[in-house]
């Protein structure tokens, strides 16, 4: 797997996010690694399953818990050419959530006159399993 492009090999990286944002530091760590690693211009996907779906929920307000609300940073991912965010439908369903409860994350498509397109794709559990099979590297948070 992995094809040659200028400057080296492009590999498929999947960042697997399974935790909500503020109870542990995993979610913030994942986002920071994603942003740093974006400089390497690899083929990056983000997966949100289990409580990880809560990372990109709308309307987060952290004033009351004295922690930084880093959810606006997900809006910057498009600028970093990270535009494949897969969210598992079963994980949403179990938690009483729908796609409408998620932030409307978008990117501008360079190859389509910078048209704004959604970055979030809802997939079912079987499709998520296929996505995992299709990767070179899976990083878990």
């Amino acid at each position: 797997m992995g094809d040659m492009s200028e400057g080296g090999t492009t590999k498929k990286f999947l960042y697997l996010n399974r935790k909500a944002s503020y109870g542990t530091v995993y979610a913030l760590e994942s986002l920071e690694v994603v942003l740093i690693a974006a400089a390497f211009e690899q083929d990056v996907s983000l997966a949100f399953i289990d409580d990880g779906v809560y990372q990109i929920i709308k309307g987060q307000d952290t004033k009351g818990i004295g922690m930084k609300n880093f959810s606006p940073t997900f809006n910057a991912l498009g600028d970093y050419d990270i535009n494949k965010l897969y969210v598992e439908k079963e994980s949403l369903d179990e938690r009483g959530l729908t796609e409408d409860d998620l932030m409307p994350l978008v990117y501008e498509d360079e190859d389509d006159d910078w048209a704004e397109k959604p970055s979030i794709k809802i997939v079912n559990r079987a499709e998520m399993a296929d996505l995992m099979q299709d990767q070179d590297v899976i990083l878990s948070f």
């Binding site: 942003l35 400089a39 880093f70 940073t73 809006n75 910057a76 600028d79 970093y80």
Partner: peptide
């Protein structure tokens, strides 16, 4: 203010 991060250099130049 908008994204809660400082942009990477390539993101900055593009923007």
């Amino acid at each position: 203010e908008e994204y809660q991060i400082a942009p990477a250099i390539r993101v900055l130049t593009k923007a």
